[in-house]
Design a protein around this nucleic acid. Structure first.
Lengths: 195, 195, 195, 195
DNA sequence: TATGAATGAGCATTCATTCAT
DNA sequence: TATGAATGAATGCTCATTCAT
């Protein structure tokens, strides 16, 4: 009775896409529903067939992005494959996966990490998973025991996010080599050993 | 008409403070002039005696913050005192100085690095100075020659900012030890040398 | 196209019922077609198969109610049976009949006498019939000749309606005894004759 | 600081008046703020300087009307002057006072007794006061003891209201003689004593 | 230096209604 | 007989800003 047909589903999808683009470019408040529907070729009331409010569509975009990202991170637990690759490569692969995910939909990435209250929570979540992984490795003796892995996790999160915005999403740097360089930096440090 | 009496100057100051607090808490668009003036005990027209528009007061807050921060960074060029301290400590001191600056006025820090277009420029500026410093050191042989100092500079910028927001401004961690840990991480890396 | 099948007729009926309930509870403007059709399990376009507009269904409800009520009143002309009962009982019976009619469908009663322009006309119609009856009786010498029967008729109309809403429809008072009390009040007055 | 000057107070007053006229003519939902302000020669935002919402101005009109009417009724307690006039005249005077009050501002009267939820409460309040008065008289032996004064009070309320709308407010009947006729009807009844 | 009063421009949202199927 | 999809036309309300004083 309230079933959505194919055409309706497509309109909904196109609204979501258009909204993502607008929110990403202008933020929540400067984004107008009139603009979104115009892009899609609909009128304002149609918007409210599919979404109950401006907040609702924003929320929907964010929460799906967040849950997908969390899923990705959680699936990448280090313990699963501690053996079958050397440490650097395993880490680099994880980092690259995150880069690729964030690059896939730049609009969502921008919205998901914009000044919306839940962005901080998301970063915190990601950081926790990262920290757990790193702590495990540390207990295996791979990392210096005196390092506070909480801080490291927070550093890495910040770095991945920032580099995503300035290098990965704009396509300025290759994700593979960037990941390797990052891992190398964090693993080896900058110091010249010869000194 | 442009002669500022004492009372006027004070009203202006209080408006700036109130605006900083509001912008920091709610962002640009959700901040209402009516709220700002109410906090200060003035009426809306009074606002326009001192600032030509909402954008103007925002701009004024940001640009002073930005220029102060730039001044700080530029004053901390490494070359100036390459000798009189060992590398780690010199770096840590610089980092701590930035931490302390950002902690001094959390509202401004939040505004200055919010999603306002100039935040990216500011970060870029800071990163350039940092990169120049690091490159100099690298040429002196302190750092591994194969490292891309541009990337490193960007990592460090991101890390300093992020840790400022989650650790320094809330007062959760001591700036001195945090700076030292950061420098240690970036200089030595995480790897356990014994391996 | 105008052949009504069984199912269609039933849908129409159920829409009328649902509409009556909604109009009674919320009035015309606060009643939404979307609510009506939802209650019936239909969609909005289906509504327009049976009724040309929101006004149309409202009008249909009202006018049937009005014509039924008029029919009732007109059928109760006093002259028809001036003899076969004493005056009080004849009057009380008429009053009770109206009470029972109004109680039968509270929703319709509420709608029919709500602030819709025709409510006043209806009351005026009822009042005229009442007045004619009373005048007849007056000419027969039953009532004091100096009384203005127009005013009395209007009083009685108002009283019947009001008591319907507060006593009869809620079922708080028995219609028979209430009718008798009313008739007694209007016939004998309140004064204590012993004084 | 938020003080209203003379001009502001006048604008507020004129908005109240215009709103009363509109609400009375069209009811709550069909009354548009745009119409109200146009009548007063203001723009829509000005409306919100003085009233927080459409509901608020409606509420203000109603509640002032209600409280004034209650004040009037309460001031007219019979006990105060049981002796100094004969019963009929005292009662008629009270009724006439209510007529005059309701006639004074027909718009408010219409709004105050329209389909707004509190109208019923108001009528109930008035009825209670009336009933108390009547019961007192009854205990003094003026009225027949078998009469249920609750019902009488409700009848009188309904009658006064209805006659106000159809006779008093339109100016069709003189309030003084109408009051007397009403009192006579309720006191003496309609029956011809000679029978 | 400050304010009471007012406004232009805009935006989210609602609802009865229609059209193609 | 019914529905999925869409819309025209409003409307309440907000906010930065101005003007006269």
């Amino acid at each position: 009775m309230n079933e959505r047909g194919l055409k309706g589903l497509e309109s909904r999808m196109r609204l979501l896409e258009a909204a993502a683009a607008e929110f990403a470019r202008n933020g929540f408040h400067e984004t107008k529903i009139s603009t979104i529907v115009k892009k899609v070729g609909l009128t304002q009331p149609s918007f409210y067939i599919y979404f109950s409010s401006k907040e609702a569509i924003f929320e929907e975009l964010i929460s799906e992005f967040h849950s997908n990202l969390k899923k990705l991170i959680e699936s990448k637990r280090l313990e699963d494959n501690l053996e079958h690759m050397d440490l650097s490569n395993r880490l680099a692969e994880i980092v690259e996966n995150v880069f690729l995910f964030l690059k896939k939909d730049p609009n969502l990435t921008r919205i998901g990490f914009s000044l919306n209250p839940k962005a901080d929570d998301l970063i915190a979540d990601l950081t926790i998973i990262l920290k757990n992984n790193l702590t495990t490795e540390q207990q295996f003796g791979y990392f210096r025991p005196e390092i506070d892995m909480e801080i490291v996790a927070k550093c890495i999160s910040a770095v991945i996010l920032h580099l995503s915005f300035i290098y990965v999403i704009p396509g300025i740097k290759d994700t593979k080599s960037l990941s390797l360089q990052l891992v190398d930096l964090f693993l080896q440090g900058m110091l010249n050993e010869n000194d």
